[in-house]
Design a protein around this nucleic acid. Sequence first.
RNA 1: GCCCCCAUCGUCUAGCGGCCUAGGACAUCACCCUUUCAAGGUGGAGACCAGGGGUUCGAAUCCCCUUGGGGGCACCA
Length: 540
Amino acid sequence: MEPVRVRYPPSPTGLPHVGNIRTALFNWLLARHTGGQFILRIEDTDRERLVEGAYEAILESLRWLGLDWDEGPEAGGPHAPYIQSERQKLGLYAEAARELVEKGDAYRCYCSTERLEKLRERQAINSLPTGYDRRCRNLSREEQARYQEEGIPPVVRFKMPLTGRTTFHDLLRGDVTWDNARMDDYVLLKADGFPTYHLANVVDDHAMRITHVLRGDEWLASTPRHVLLYQAFGWEPPQFAHLALVLGEDRAKLSKRHGAVALLDFRDDGYLPEAMVNFLALMGWSLDDKTTLISRADLVKHFSLDRVSASPAAFDLDKLKWMNGSYIRQLPLEEFTGRALSFLEDPDHGLPPRIPRPLDRNYVQRVCALLQERVRTLAEMSEQAELFFTDEVIYPPLLIWAGMGDKELRRRAEAGEDLSNVPLPENAPAVRTWLDAALAILKETYSLPADKSADPTIHHVLDIIAGKTPWLHKDLENACRALAGELQVKTGELFGALRVAITGRITAPPLFQSMEVLGRDRTLKRLQAAAARLPQQGTG
RNA sequence: GCCCCCAUCGUCUAGCGGCCUAGGACAUCACCCUUUCAAGGUGGAGACCAGGGGUUCGAAUCCCCUUGGGGGCACCA
């Protein structure tokens, strides 16, 4: 395919959401695949609906996903400016509108908004087709002059052909035909001097030499108007392809009530941009019958319009989570640590604020090693890593029994039931003896001096020669397995009790590795605190 | 109401006339692994290809109708 010039023309009236960004991605992929250009153009012609921060969010969304633009704001380019309000100041649109008026393809309309509203109302009541009634289409010179004298600012309307049909070829859907009579004389230039989307996008797409217009399905119905406009100007229209919309999980059009839909929400929820790109690419495009995990490079290499689906896709958050988890697991540990670190330190989305920053990178890396294959998002890291960053863990003592394997208790704990006031089972003193015994045994196990911890294996050997057992998960496990034998309890039962005592949770990373990361001090303190909360033998 | 677009497992999709008793992925279920949770492995259930007519020796694939879903009908994009 020849190099294309495509554009992404967002309007700063809100935060870009995933459906919108999906369109940007497809444009970007087509540009990169063909070696063409991807152009960013800001369509801020609606002065009333501008939203503060939306412009920044647009740029940030593209940057986060790595969708770099060849021309546009900040990048510049041969067709600058790329912000329509600035182009408006240059008189580009007014000039184009005047040209059409002079040629007789457009006219000035002085109808008030009130009249138009009433008109629409009447049409609705009588179930007539809505649309402008062309009252100003054939105004006499005198009438026009009179309105002008009254100082009514006119809009410029396109003079729609009253008969005939307009056909255009959609790259995804084939030929689409409209009856011209079905379309009204739509507005090109508003009373405030700003163009409507219809005028602005045609004028700019032509000026910027856009070859392919890849946009959402919501534009399909206005494409014949655009085609007619190109004809009126005597310009060659670009190729069109209308992408099916992205729907919410309930198959309705994606909107705020579907939860996170703004692209940057996903960043804040701990999704990786590469996973997001992969996932979005698969909303309407596919490589073949079995590939789901595709690198950005392969996406660029293989993307093509004829593998784009014409039917709408529902957003499947579960699949995104899975895919994100898969990308997380693929990351080298160092890389994962880097990303997790900045996320964990973030005051809004990371660890609770009471945990002091900055975090120690080496320590975070050891935590990451345990959690990497257990989280699907970075936000899950925040939850699961917390126990490694606090001195004490808080939990109802009864949770120990849930950890030991009591199915009913476990179910209740997982259901979020408050177990703090439920009386402890009769074997509580026995369980306490386990914890005490574990505490005694683990006290025999030593941490490596800090300066030695760089190479634990060598020092492990040295310490064994010296008669010491270092604080390494293998040794901890051996010790506790032996203890289970002595106590004549199942290993799973003992380990489960220890897990809750030490981590405060019934599910956590592998017990002995967690203990190793937590270190001797914290582990022993937590064990002691846990034991102290259980009744002693004979004291009832 | 009018116009347009779309239609394969719950979801994303493969399929562009015979390779399909419809393939993959997520989710789901069972089992294996296992100190919990994950991850991983194995297997299962899950779509009579929306329904009905054609065309054809032969249709998920082409055509028509119906139904359903979506979009559009602004001095919003």
